[in-house]
């Protein structure tokens, strides 16, 4: 259990670092874009909203930096992330809670698919080294060198403009009301096909390659040789002896590459105008909506940390050494 506790402590420190960075950035960098925005909105801001923006962006110069920091934490713990300028006058927290499920659904499902698919292909490629599977590697390398968003653009141009098979944008058909009905769910799935395939295609190569290289290394280990000498079936050696050990770096790598994958997925959402956090962020950039951008950053960081903790639990289940410790 100490393993999990240590990891949880580390994630708390990371969360603290991310929040503190969010606090410091607008105070350290030159220019006062939020003040400009408040002036522009003038009397349309009520005094509560004004006060929270002052706290979040440190516009109240009379207070010391420590007082500002305490106020900032107070606002965050109340769930107050300020008002969004883009979706004025909706609070940032409301915008985020509407778009978060879309991102969690799309990115969560595609990341798990890509991980399982890539790892499985890596197991076979590493086990049967020198077979035709090896020629897949340059192809997948090329695919993973393509930026996520560009692959998305190509997917739109081929599968929605040239051959209109799938919708090019949005999360569900216009005119439908989000509800728990067959029609709505069907529409959601149809809209998720292109963005989903884009994310899987561009992220699968990393898993294949990492797994293949570990399989190649593990296959040469003595315990695999012993397993062969015992006359165990190929399948059993491949999965229970080689793959189980080879997958460990992939899982600890999963945690670390998640931040990167999520970044790519945000871009895919931008390209497909998918109603998740990425598209919200994209709209925020255009309007210089700092409360919204910072809110997106915090929510994404939190989601990545939770996913990391889940990956750690998986690691714990696969590797008995971490359980015996402590």
């Amino acid at each position: 259990m100490t393993f999990l506790l240590r990891r949880a402590l580390f994630y708390l420190v990371t969360l603290w670092a991310a929040i503190t960075a969010n606090f410091l950035l607008p105070r350290l960098l030159p220019g006062d874009p939020v003040q400009a925005m408040i002036t522009k909105l003038g009397g349309r801001l009520n005094s509560d909203a004004m006060a929270s923006l002052y706290i979040l962006f440190g516009l109240d110069a009379k207070k010391s930096i420590w007082e500002q920091y305490v106020d900032y934490w107070g606002a965050l713990l109340r769930g107050d992330l300020g008002l969004s300028f883009t979706f004025f006058p909706t609070p940032v927290a409301d915008v985020l809670s509407q778009s978060l499920p879309w991102t969690l659904g799309l990115v969560g499902v595609t990341t798990v698919i890509a991980f399982l698919l890539g790892t499985l292909m890596g197991v076979y490629a590493g086990w049967k080294r020198g077979s035709w599977m090896d020629s897949l590697i340059p192809v997948t390398t090329f695919l993973s060198s393509i930026p996520y968003f560009w692959l998305g653009l190509i997917a739109i141009s081929v599968f929605s403009v040239t051959w209109p098979l799938f919708p090019a944008s949005g999360g569900y058909a216009a005119g439908l009301v989000p509800e728990f009905s067959g029609e709505f769910i069907g529409s959601v799935l149809e809209h998720a096909v292109l963005p989903g395939i884009t994310i899987v295609v561009s992220s699968v190569a990393g898993w294949i390659l990492g797994m293949r290289n570990m399989m190649v290394t593990v296959t040469a280990e003595d315990y695999v040789l012993v397993a062969r000498a015992k006359g165990l079936s190929q399948r059993r050696i491949m999965f229970a002896y080689a793959a189980r050990n080879a997958v460990l770096p992939s899982i600890s790598g999963f945690a670390l590459s998640l931040g990167f994958i999520v970044g790519g997925a945000l871009l895919v959402e931008m390209v497909f105008s998918y109603p998740g956090l990425g598209y919200v962020l994209f709209q925020g950039i255009g309007a210089k909506d700092y409360p919204l951008m910072q809110g997106v950053f915090l929510v994404i960081t939190l989601a990545v940390l939770v996913a990391n903790l889940l990956a750690d639990v998986g690691y714990l289940l696969l590797d008995p050494r971490t359980r015996r410790e402590g």
Binding site: F10, G31, L256, G259, G263, G264, Y290, M293, V296, F297
Partner: peptide, 19 residues
């Protein structure tokens, strides 16, 4: 590790747009 885990893209977008 903190730098690895924090999602870089949204952070850089914020920094770049504040510059």
């Amino acid at each position: 590790n903190v730098f690895l885990v924090i999602p870089a893209l949204p952070l850089i977008i914020i920094v770049a747009s504040m510059l």
